[in-house]
Design a protein around this nucleic acid. Structure first.
Lengths: 201, 201, 201, 201
DNA sequence: CATGAATGAGCGTTCATTCAT
DNA sequence: AATGAATGAACGCTCATTCAT
């Protein structure tokens, strides 16, 4: 079955889905509500998506894909390591902010649909690539062994994800700002410590 | 409406709810299934809990309360700081393991019911108390300022929570074991670094 | 899942189903309409029947079962062969009359659910038993070989079934009466011919 | 609304309708599927037929019309009575075979749309015409009075129709063959008996 | 207090039909 | 005349909740 080409309408549906899934979670979100927000008839949703599951899947996956793409772009840039970290921080938090509505309701269904683990590991892989490349350029020293690093990366990534997801919309901007600063200061500590320990070697 | 006194039956319902909510998530869990597992009639659930929301609320809160109680006990013990850290690690992961079934399906509803933030902050408060007390006894030096520490604690706590919640039951034991080791090694690094930097002062 | 014991209500639902399935056919019959006729809430239907298919199945099968039972009773009676034929005619047509509402809409779904062939063959088997027994008692001579007889029995049975099913309710009584007479006269011809040919042997 | 002149396309739609109605029955057949098989857009169906009901009506009627035409041709031929019977048998069963897909799902809708009775009676009328003419030519003797004969004809016609309709596609050829033989043997018995009784007069 | 049958609002989904292109 | 995306009413079915027993 071929899908119509009206990408604008498809995106209106995805935006509406993002909003509604975010507001009430997957199970309580209704196609009728999503259609109402997208300003179309309920039946039209099924012209663009096979069923509720696929709509959710596409909604979530589009956010992950954006993250992967951005991280890839940062990695391939000519920026210095600290600049890359800074860009990553800004990009990641901006995406989290945009995805905030859905984060809260997405974990359980994402996991059930196997959308979470695959994307998380892919994200971590790219992050490690970035570190490897920077180390090869002599921009950083290694602090931990592979496993330890992976553990910390995963834990921090999950930690940020969950922290954003539990903020209510009202305080979202302030929280993002706070995390931004905290991450920046933390990075500075790491860079300092890295330099210090690197110098000690 | 006054509540009946049969606490044994109330707990049977809570256990059944923990199991069913965990297996299928809040939205897909049915009162009928919970009642069947608790070996009572569906209507009886409403003698002990006002509605499905309250049943979920009580189910989740009982797990948190257990965590708070355990952490309090550890804090008040006479153990050394490394021992306390070790006990905390073991206790926390054991509870996470027991709560695993429900973790996956609980975030969105927990947040919506404001069960998450309050309990998380209370947990972090206790954790900080533990650090303060240990520092006062000269067992540790401070590495970061209050805010930085809070950020790291919250991020790591959330990170562990989310990591456990996305593991499927089959790999749960292996994952718990892995996290246990990773945390232990990480703690050792911190202790080493703490000692090193402390010595520098 | 055990079913409640309120047989009166179950039968009210079956009667309503008979009426509605008969009026509009399986596909266009709605659970809501059946529930309305049975004077219950739509959901209640699902307390007594698993789904629409099972409700239809039970509705149709109950009629066939009644026919099998009646034919069995006639066979085992002490009546003479002509009396048995007469009783069979009356019983069969009476049942067809009662089932008339559903006949029209039932063929296609019955066949799809494999309700038709099995019951038809069972009916024909019993009919043949009746002939065999009567022949053993010397009440009839055989006119045709087994296959020819089976063919005629099946064709006539199907023919009567279809004829009744295509009569509209308004003319049902007259049609039943007409078929009754026609069958009676036909039987008489057969008996005459049987006697004639029997006498010739 | 005037109808377009593209008869080839109209027939493609009718053929597709015959196939789809036959495969799944009236209610489950969709205009989209019929359009897909006919290789046109769904909307185009409504250029040639007012709605789904009319499309079904035309589909079924075209089959009946074919039967009437064929029977008429046989009647008007110069063949002898036994040859005519034989041709009728062959023609009828061949048409039933071709119509098999639709038979199963058509009774209820056909009756509801009053397509069945009229065509059946017209078919029986033609059949009787054939007998009358053959009797006038002295080819057969009469066995029964008008009413008795009409009853038997109608019953056997309906019986054959229903028997074919309940055969699944897989066994259709074998069943047609079987009915062919049974009818032939039965006709022979009738002819024999007719001759015997005729000779007695 | 316990029961469990009854309730009925509301879900995801389908599809005959329309109509702007 | 042909298209096919859009429509929205209506379906089968679920299940939190109630209440007569």
């Amino acid at each position: 079955m071929s899908r119509p080409q009206d990408l604008a309408k498809r995106n209106r549906i995805l935006d509406a889905a993002l909003q509604i899934f975010g507001e009430v979670g997957y199970a309580k979100a209704t196609i009728k509500d999503i259609a109402r927000v997208a300003d179309i008839a309920p039946g039209t949703v099924y012209t663009y998506f096979a069923d509720k599951r696929e709509l959710f899947r596409e909604t979530v996956q589009s956010a992950w894909t954006e993250l992967h793409t951005e991280l890839d772009r940062i990695r391939r840039s000519d920026d210095s390591y600290p600049t890359k970290l800074s860009r990553l921080r800004r990009t990641g938090l901006a995406l989290l902010k945009r995805m905030h509505p859905i984060l809260n309701g997405m974990f359980s269904e994402s996991v059930r649909m196997d959308l979470f683990n695959v994307n998380l590991e892919r994200f971590l892989d790219q992050l490690e690539e970035l570190f490897m490349e920077s180390r090869e350029r002599g921009e950083i020293h290694e602090l931990q062994d592979h496993r330890q690093r992976r553990f910390l990366l995963r834990t921090i990534a999950c930690g940020l994800l969950l922290q954003i997801s539990i903020v209510d919309a009202e305080h979202l901007d302030a929280e993002i700002e706070r995390l931004h600063e905290d991450l920046e200061r933390n990075e500075q500590s790491w860079l300092d410590m890295n330099r210090m320990l690197g110098g000690n070697r």
